[in-house]
């Protein structure tokens, strides 16, 4: 192999450097204790005995993402939205293109792969939805479910063809509508507690989940005996649709064949 000497020296460098740092006690070593801030988060994430500060979600990460640090996540969603908008803007100027007139069976991969992909796509969507809906109880949430679900259209695009998706109505415009609905859902959930507070003539905050010391408004944590953790469940569903639709738009735009660009007057190479 060409690189073998470099690889061996690299590995030896890492091993000896780690040994040196360990002997000198210079590297960062995690301790047996976590920081005090983390203790506060862990103590209050699901704590029915401390109603004033809890987020009522057994999942610490989702509680931080959508409750303690909710405003950060809303702005991060905005960054994500702008990056997708930038991609769509860059992909403009593509002319009309038609399906190749050759046989339908020539498109995509072999029959075995197509059949397995049909089964797999269903299970991918099922896994993604379960990840998103249980995001406040088990590991998962809107981002995880959305990123998982975005692989299903990509598999279809590659194993079948993009015409398979387009003929079944999954187009860029439909995905834009779903995406806007998801973003609107995030916005509505964020100001829900505030509107309830206005209606009940009480103080309430934007992005509030459970009751806080200064405001007694709280979104119900249990519906029909099932724990939904207030706003977290709605945030997860909305984020699931926004992320999934956003990635699907970009992937549909990305696999447009090159002759579409050439037919719209692009430079010939």
């Amino acid at each position: 192999m060409r690189h073998s000497i470099a690889i061996v020296s690299l590995v030896l460098f890492v091993l000896s450097m780690a040994l040196l740092l360990t002997l000198a006690k210079q590297a960062y070593i995690p301790r047996k204790e976590v920081r005090d801030l983390a203790k506060i988060y862990l103590n209050t994430t699901y704590n029915p005995w401390n109603k004033k500060f809890t987020a009522m979600s057994p999942e610490g990460v989702t509680a931080i993402v959508w409750d303690y640090r909710g405003l950060d996540t809303v702005f991060e969603t905005a960054v994500f939205y702008l990056a997708i908008i930038g991609s769509i803007a860059l992909a403009r100027g593509i002319g009309k293109y038609s399906k190749p007139t050759s046989d339908e069976k020539k498109l995509g991969l072999s029959l075995i792969v197509k059949t397995v992909t049909r089964i797999t796509t269903v299970s991918i969507i099922a896994v993604a939805v379960s990840i998103a809906l249980h995001g406040h109880l088990t590991p998962g949430g809107g981002f995880q479910g959305g990123a998982t679900a975005a692989v299903a259209p990509l598999l279809i695009l590659i194993a079948f063809s993009q015409y398979f998706l387009l003929e079944r109505g999954v187009s860029k415009d439909l995905m834009l509508v779903i995406r806007s609905l998801g973003l609107a859902g995030i916005g509505l959930t964020a100001i829900a507690a505030y509107f309830i507070g206005v209606a009940m003539n009480k103080y309430a905050f934007v992005l509030q989940n459970q009751a806080k010391p200064l405001s007694e408004v709280s979104i119900p944590a249990y519906i029909d005996g099932q724990l939904i953790s207030g706003t977290l469940w709605f945030f997860n569903i909305s984020e699931f649709f926004a992320v999934m639709a956003g990635f699907t738009i970009v992937l549909i735009l990305l696999v447009i064949p090159e002759r579409a660009f050439k037919s719209s007057g692009g430079e010939e190479k």
Binding site: L37, Y41, T45, V65, T73, E76, F80, G141, G146
Partner: peptide, 17 residues
């Protein structure tokens, strides 16, 4: 500690975008 995980979670998705 759950806080770094929550920050990394959004960072990965935005990195993909």
């Amino acid at each position: 500690d759950p806080l770094p995980q929550a920050l990394v979670l959004t960072a990965i998705v935005i990195g993909l975008a």
